[in-house]
């Protein structure tokens, strides 16, 4: 019989590799009986979805950090220098 701890590990692992037959069966039986683990599975699925969307969200965020004026100046100078030194 799988414990909640085993199941939490399996739920995470199922995002990395296909589970074997026994693993899937054990997982299904446990989830059927355990509300906490069902919740865990939904949350872990949501996490994956959220992280894949995070990049787009971060771009759209008006309060997101921007490249500082000093850094921009430094990069522009580096670009100008590189251009001057390449034929």
């Amino acid at each position: 019989m799988l414990t909640c701890k085993d199941v939490s590990h399996l739920v995470s692992t199922s995002q990395e590799r296909p589970l074997g037959f026994r693993e899937r069966l054990g997982l299904r039986v446990h989830l059927w009986m355990c509300a906490n683990c069902r919740r865990f599975q939904r949350q872990i699925d949501l996490l994956r979805l959220a992280l894949r969307k995070l990049a787009t969200e971060a771009d759209a965020d008006p309060h997101a950090p921007a490249l500082s004026a000093e850094a921009r100046q430094r990069i522009r100078e580096a670009l100008a220098e590189r251009r001057a030194n390449t034929p």
């Binding site: 701890k5 939490s8 906490n36 919740r39 949350q43 979805l49």
Partner: peptide, 22 residues
Amino acid sequence: SFTAAGRWSATLGDWGDPQQAL
């Protein structure tokens, strides 16, 4: 997170509707 018997040591929070969360 788990008891010695491998059960969750506390009830997990209810995150509601995932779509709404996002």
